[in-house]
Design a protein around this nucleic acid. Structure first.
Length: 229
DNA sequence: CCCTGATTCGC
DNA sequence: GCGAATCAGG
């Protein structure tokens, strides 16, 4: 995966908007693992994860286990490697088991529920805008690749949801982020890193029904259009 | 079962 | 650095 400044910017954008990793991955045509991995490397703020930290609050009894989370995949290998030592004889360890595409990735479920709106995290992250629900459209596009239209290509049709004006009430200090002076629609393409002093939005006049101006809409949606396979 | 994100580790 | 494999909670 080529992590260009563009893709990273989009990753950060989508990430800060609270989209799920899988969703981000879909929009970027990468796996959620890639998204999560990259997000971590970028040091993006972790979003409420389904799994709790085993010891969110310490002070419990017991204790000796500082970090027994080491099960890790290496175990399989360790067994495989060291297996010849103890258990080699009686039975084969049969290390292969989970490897088979167990859950896989829900390849292309035709009818997927729209990504539920992520709850606002209490963490110091600030959702800048509502999540863009674009998946259904994508699915639609992908679901109907079979179109006999040699001479009459159906209208290009924006593959993105209209995305109503978010109009996010500034509950926290937005000082430093230059907001559009007027209240009309403005391009909300993020410039810079959210949370840093220089961060701001494009602010140009967006395309009708789109959250971005022509320039950024091209960047934002080209991949989506391209990703349909 | 499905979803989710986190972590590890081979590449 | 990257991401698949894996783990683990809801």
């Amino acid at each position: 995966m080529e992590w260009t400044d563009e893709t990273i910017a989009r990753l950060r954008d989508l990430w800060s908007q609270g989209l799920s990793t899988a969703e981000i991955g879909r929009q970027l045509s990468i796996t959620k693992n890639a998204v999560v991995g990259k997000a971590h490397r970028l040091g993006l703020p972790p979003r409420p994860s389904p799994i709790r930290n085993r010891k969110a609050a310490d002070g419990e009894a017991g204790t000796t286990e500082a970090a027994p989370r080491r099960k890790s995949p290496s175990k399989a290998k360790a067994v495989e490697a060291a297996g010849s030592d103890l258990f080699a004889e009686g039975k084969d360890a049969a290390p292969a088991k989970a490897a088979s595409g167990v859950v896989e990735k829900t390849a292309e479920t035709p009818a997927r529920k729209a990504p539920s709106a992520p709850e606002a995290p209490k963490a110091p992250v600030q959702p800048v805008a509502a999540a863009r629900v674009v998946s259904p459209v994508q699915k639609e596009a992908a679901a109907a690749p079979h179109r006999e239209a040699p001479i009459t290509p159906p209208k290009p049709e924006p593959r993105v949801a209209p995305a109503p004006r978010p109009a996010v009430p500034p509950r926290f200090s937005t000082a430093g982020i230059d907001r559009p002076t007027r209240r009309g629609p403005s391009c909300c393409w993020p410039i810079g890193d959210p949370g840093t002093p220089g961060f701001h939005f494009c602010g140009a006049t967006p395309l009708p029904g789109k959250p971005y101006c022509a320039e950024h809409a091209a960047i934002a949606y080209v991949k989506i259009r391209d990703r349909r396979d």
